[in-house]
Design a protein around this nucleic acid. Structure first.
Length: 382
DNA sequence: TCTGGGGTCCTAGGACCC
DNA sequence: TCTGGGGTCCTAGGACCC
């Protein structure tokens, strides 16, 4: 392991929305949000132009998965309910999600990076970490002129991604994953940010604690009640008091993170731990009054998760369900069976016995089925 | 006008075994 | 028989991420 690592974090800019703009270039520069169901597919008119749905009057339970930068300027962002977004930006164009298309572009941008730098960790559909430390050829450039060499390599990555996909991305390059993740966000879109530990106080410490990957809503709120808003303020705490407030594991991690310390390697291969399917109903359903509909959905979820497992070549031993009630309270139940399976009827039956252990007095808004403790299946599905 | 769907990891208690 | 300690598995919930 080299003493000095160079780790890149590459994040595609407004990925889903940008893929849609390739398909509908006439929307370039406009406020566009992606989310919801296939109902609002654009209509091709007789004169060859397209008619797009807008957020105005949207009714339903969808959320925004991605918004263009123009839409973000209107105060809407990913995760926001579409009905709330419709009040803020009624004229924004609404497009349905097309995961198959995004997955195709995801494969393309990752392949374009791999041509130049093969040590890649997948972090979902639109981002990756890349270990540049051992780059053959880059090594000399890095040794002679660390910043120039690394910058040139990162620019090559951006160019290759654009050539292969027509899309822009933002890259952060630093000595570790934690800092690179923050850095890639500093100059979005189409950004390139190089930082070393010498830049910590000036570039990282002024940022809000929530910019750290791993500090979420709960930890952020607790830090705020302690008067800690920025990463610098977090770094000014002593380790012992953070451990006292947050426990040994998380407290020590908070301390290290605020000082830019992160030794995690770039993981180039990982096996899935679980696979699941879940669905939120258009209206809340009652276990007795809507028994027929619920039964059909339950069977469909079991079939879907079974076919996912079979297609990808896995079997699992722990079968579980997830329910979310009308009051948004969520419960899970699971059951570990003797023989790992990918069989829809076995999964359905085990999930059914989990369901019997839940009090179904309240109406249900979400139902899910999960299979965990996965192993690779050998031969034809058991 | 409440909040999608797909994941990972951690914690904690109880069962069970040696 | 009145009572230790360690290890692993199972289950439930929750924080967090993309």
């Amino acid at each position: 392991m080299p003493t000095r690592r160079w780790i890149a974090h590459l994040d595609m800019d407004a990925f889903y929305a940008s893929v849609e703009l390739l398909r509908y270039p006439e929307l370039m520069g406009q406020a566009v949000v992606i989310g919801g169901s296939k109902r609002h597919q654009p209509l091709l008119l007789a004169d060859g132009t397209r008619r797009f749905a807008t957020l105005d009057g949207y009714a339903g339970r969808g959320v925004i998965t991605t918004a263009t930068y123009a839409a973000r300027d209107l105060g809407v962002h990913s995760g926001m309910g579409l009905m709330k977004a419709a009040l803020r930006a009624p004229q924004a164009v609404l497009l349905p999600v097309d995961f198959e298309q995004y997955r195709a572009y995801s494969r393309r941008f990752k392949a374009a990076v791999a041509e130049l730098a093969p040590v890649i960790e997948d972090r979902g559909i639109d981002e990756i970490y890349i270990d540049l430390s051992e780059q053959p050829g880059a090594q000399d450039a890095i040794a002679h002129d660390p910043h120039g060499g690394v910058r040139a390599l990162a620019l090559d990555l951006k160019n290759n991604v654009r050539r292969a996909t027509g899309l822009s991305c933002s890259i952060g390059v630093t000595p570790n994953k934690l800092l690179s993740k923050i850095a890639s966000d500093l100059d979005k879109p189409n950004g390139l940010t190089l930082l070393t530990l010498d830049d910590l106080a000036e570039r990282i410490w002024p940022l809000p604690v929530r910019k750290v990957n791993g500090i979420g809503p709960k930890a952020g709120a607790k830090l705020s009640t302690l008067g800690i808003e920025t990463i610098g303020q977090l770094a000014a705490q002593d380790r012992a008091s953070l451990i006292q407030q947050f426990g040994l594991s998380y407290g020590a991690w908070l301390f290290d993170a605020s000082h830019g310390i992160d030794d995690r390697p770039v993981i180039t291969h990982s096996e899935p731990v679980s696979m699941s399917r879940e669905t939120t109903f258009e209206r809340d359903l009652h276990a007795l009054r809507d028994k027929t509909a619920l039964t059909a959905i339950f069977t469909q979820l079991a079939n879907q998760v079974a076919s996912d497992l079979q297609r990808k070549g896995y079997v699992g031993r722990t079968i579980g369900i997830k329910l979310r009630f009308e009051d948004f309270k969520t419960v899970t139940r699971d059951l570990t069976v003797a023989q790992p399976t990918a069989d829809a009827s076995v999964i359905r039956q085990a999930a059914g016995s989990c369901l019997k252990r839940v009090d179904l007095a309240r109406r249900i808004r979400l139902l899910g089925i999960r299979v965990g403790a996965l192993q690779r299946s050998t031969g034809p599905a058991a």
